[in-house]
Amino acid sequence: MTTPPPWAAEGGQQTHAIAKNDDVVRARQLARTLAQESKLSLVDQTKFITAASELARNTMVYGGGGELRAGLVRRNGRLGVAAVFDDTGPGIADVDLAMTDGWTSGLGLGLGLSGARRLVDEFLLDTEPGRGTTVTIIKWAR
């Protein structure tokens, strides 16, 4: 188990199912609302929302659907925003390979995981073949 993000008390966390195509849009909208609340700069907001969009699509396409938990986080007085994407799909057999630019098991560009990692401050991948995949991302306000 990976350690959960340091959720901030205020606001708590929200849970959204990712099951249908338009849930990717909804995941983006939730990420946008939270990124604005956490006082990220405009560029950092855009980076976080884009990363969330990539991961929501991964959960949908490769994980066969799952769940998004997102909320504000606080560590050492710093405010940030976190999102956890959870699926019970096939999992990833070769993590190093999956994190390589341009590698894809499906129809994408293969920038989903590796690209999303570059867009955030913290990126945690927890996966096991047959059990599913959990990706946690955090972006801190500067």
């Binding site: 907001q45 855009t46 980076k47 884009t50 560009l109 920038l111 590796s114 690209g115 570059r118 867009l119």
Partner: peptide, 11 residues
Amino acid sequence: AVAITLVELGL
């Protein structure tokens, strides 16, 4: 912001 993000994404 979109341009910066795309570059970071690798596109």
